[in-house]
Design a protein around this nucleic acid. Sequence first.
DNA 1: CACGAAAATGGAAATGATTATCATTTCCAA
DNA 2: TTGGAAATGATAATCATTTCCATTTTCGTG
Lengths: 121, 121
Amino acid sequence: MNKSDLKMISVLERTGGFASAQELHQILRREGDGIGLTTVYRALQSLVDDKIVDLLRRDDGEAIYRLCGDGHHHHLVCKGCGQTVEIEGGAIENWATAKAKEFGFREVAHTAEIFGLCSKC
Amino acid sequence: MNKSDLKMISVLERTGGFASAQELHQILRREGDGIGLTTVYRALQSLVDDKIVDLLRRDDGEAIYRLCGDGHHHHLVCKGCGQTVEIEGGAIENWATAKAKEFGFREVAHTAEIFGLCSKC
DNA sequence: CACGAAAATGGAAATGATTATCATTTCCAA
DNA sequence: TTGGAAATGATAATCATTTCCATTTTCGTG
Ligand SMILES: [Zn+2]
Ligand SMILES: [Zn+2]
Ligand SMILES: [Zn+2]
Ligand SMILES: [Zn+2]
């Protein structure tokens, strides 16, 4: 956890929803920070490794990042403004376990996200 | 649905699980087909538009494609060999609807996939 | 069959995100 | 203070995907 990591956490907090590495870099530059693009990528990767930020993909494949709470959870994401709500998996957790067992799969993990328009959008 | 589209369906059937555009192109070339990379991308995109193949992303963001049955369903994917089983969403469908309503989201869609190791791997 | 328009094709160049290099700077403990 | 490790950032390299454009194929019509 070095200086750049903290800087990335700070800008992610301020921007709220998602952002790509390139966008975060531009934001910092605009604010007068001379941080290099290389360092932005390195810091984000480090935060992803430490499970402090989530990495997901835009439709075009570009990586986007967001701060993410501890523990296992899922997301409800607004397609309009990017606002993200962390939610419990509820019944999904059992569903995933049951389906995996049914087909003889081991060491299972799962992903589940809901996309839609929030009340403001 | 032109000649190239059918060719891509054929090679996807033969390879079974996932494959990237580059990989599918190489396979066809190896088989003596002189198809161009551009055409491979075009055909795959067309099949995705027609919902005949699924597009998802490798960890590094590269697009991978797979044949996909009709209607809404989810997947159980082997991390080892890529074997994919199409499964029903079951409890997920209600979970997604309920969570969306709870937070005032409209026009919702969802994704859910389970990853693990199949009995052979 | 012959002709022309429209669609399909594929090679080459352009694009753009991400990663690799590498010289320089910053940290920090001894 | 100092020597080495870690961090930094400019630049170049990579590589999937898209764009361009000239050529070929397809296909309906006369
Ligand atoms: Zn919104
Ligand atoms: Zn879960
Ligand atoms: Zn397997
Ligand atoms: Zn579903």
